[in-house]
Design a protein around this nucleic acid. Structure first.
Length: 122
RNA sequence: UGAGUCGGCCAGACAACCGCUGUAGUUCAGAUUGAGCUAUGGAGGAAAGUCCGGGCUCCAAAGAGCAGGGUGCCAGGUAACGCCUGGGAGGCGCGAGCCUACGGAAAGUGCAACAGAAAAGAAACCGCCUGUUCACGCUUGCGUGAAGAGGUAAGGGUGAAAUGGUGCGGUAAGAGCGCACCGCAUGGGUGGCAACAUUCCAUGGCUAGGUAAACCCCACCUGGAGCAAGGCCAAAUAGGGAUCCAUUCAGGUGUGGCUCGCACCGGAUCCGGGUAGGCCGCUUGAGGUAUGUGGUGACACAUAUCCCAGAUGAAUGGUUGUCCACGACAGAACCCGGCUUAUCGGCCGACUCACCAG
RNA sequence: CGGAGUGUAGCUCAGACUGGUAGAGCACUGCCUUCGGGAGGCAGGGGUCAUGGGUUCAAAUCCCUUCACUCCGA
């Protein structure tokens, strides 16, 4: 199994991001984060992060959240369907511990996979 | 031992597994490059605030003047500074030490609410004192009261601030009016590169109150923007761009607020121009470490040695285990030198005070 | 990352350059007016002038520090 995460697996320019924002196929969220997803024709899923200075003021916390999101995505990317994913951080996320954030992201990815499976069956 | 002052250093450690990124080597594909393997590097003392200074880039060369801005005891250090070091003055502390925008108010202008008589080349409100006039009392030349004239800054009261202090003399009452001591100012001498000091000498009787983080004066410094600077390759789209030659006036355009100055406008030759995107700028530097020399010190010089982040939707992480002092503030974005602010604790050195013992 | 600017009553803003009283409109409270409400009139309450220092006799205002917020520049 391949756990690597290179530039191919990231959204690299504003065109990629705006496509996900304008043509969102699926949405899952909690009180401290929101995940948008769009089906693609690539053979692998791709990740984009939006962690603004307004929602997370401290730069150390902002880096921590992005690292945790990338790590969680890296460990699950083989299990995910072929989608472009954008994770948006909300205000309360900087108060959570690392373990809580990882648990939250895992459950969100599970919900997303379940929704996509349900859509395919229907 | 306790309390304290100053300076310096560290910023959890180790291991396993899974990842990210730069460089070098190598293999395979490929010929713009991509993938794998190996080796090796990968956030800070403040990376922060952006408060100063410089490098670098563009504005023709960064030139002149004005305006504007900054600094402000003296000397030195430095690429430079509003920083640092040493010294002076003033203030705080028993002390080690610490703090200070610390030039000029006898160049000029302005300001000082309220209160107070008066707020700046002084002033008479109460008070004190001396004459004059009037009234009253009588002890018949004195007392009291009123009016008006003059002297007086000792006392009261106001205020943040009221024009040397204490004592003696002096006077109608007073006053640097005079004297002694203290303070102050000016000139000279002496010490010091200087700021400044002065138990030295002379002079002045005190004139010159506060505010310059009010305008201002003096001395020194200062062109403007900023790596999203700027340069190169180049889809889309749109009509000019580069080089060479010539050059008078006016006008216009081109950068900072203005003026001067400077460049361009004409002709000839040649073709690409430049938004998305990519590349360069991008890390070898006023560099680090060690030793020696000079200097009180900041620092400088010499020799040896080392290469120590360079991302770009943006890397330096996650999980588990062990140990301890149980981990604060916090994340590079062109690069340096400072300042300021945030901060868990720990270690080392020098010194001061108090107590005890010797 | 770089560059500008703003914090004053519950809200929107004056006052700051040139230092001495903190003001205006809307909102709020009470009274008058009306059968009652609205409108109108009269009176009143409400301010760490974002924070901490400094200059000054005296600071919203002058100077420095810190903290928020807003707007520009691929």
């Amino acid at each position: 199994m391949n756990f690597s995460l290179t530039k191919e697996h990231k959204l690299l320019n504003s065109l990629d991001f705006s496509q996900v924002f304008e043509k969102t196929d699926f949405k899952v969220s909690t009180s401290s984060s929101l995940i948008l997803a769009k089906l693609t024709t690539n053979s692998y899923p791709r990740l984009g992060l939006v962690v603004s200075k307004k929602n997370v003021g401290c730069a150390v916390a902002r880096n921590r959240i992005k690292r945790l999101c990338r790590e969680s995505f890296r460990l699950r990317s083989a299990l995910l369907p072929k989608v472009d994913v954008v994770i948006l951080a909300k205000t309360g996320i900087s108060r959570l511990e690392n373990k809580q954030i990882i648990d939250m992201l895992n459950s969100l990815f599970d919900q997303l996979s379940a929704k996509i499976e349900h859509r395919k069956l229907a």
